[in-house]
Design a protein around this nucleic acid. Sequence first.
DNA 1: GGGCTGACGGTTG
DNA 2: GCAACCGCCAGCC
Length: 112
Amino acid sequence: MNHSNLYQKIYEIVADIPEGRVATYGQIAWMAGRPNAPRVVGYAMSRVPAGLNLPCHRVVNKSGKLAPYQVFGGEQFQRALLEKEGVTFLENGCIDLKKCQWSIYVPEEDME
DNA sequence: GGGCTGACGGTTG
DNA sequence: GCAACCGCCAGCC
């Protein structure tokens, strides 16, 4: 099994994140088959081709904090973008994971 | 082929 | 509750 397949899967998972929802690196790693490799996910994001147009801004850490990725133009830009998509932010600047954390099992009753 | 780094996570202090 | 350290896997020098 080629490692490139792992990257491809990571890209696929990130690209499958719906608007208004966010996913954690650990969750993506878990879905990609590497629950112990959250770093690899972050690294994959760092090396992701811009042509894929991946919504990497929807990927946050377990703390609900946005990655120190200033390449987007600033954390505020990223935050505003997510907020515009419907992501709920807390007063402390963290994302409300309990409401916006993406799951493959999307409960319709929880969706509004 | 070996060592360092990295957009993280969990545990311990 | 917050801060720091260790551990993890893959990529790059």
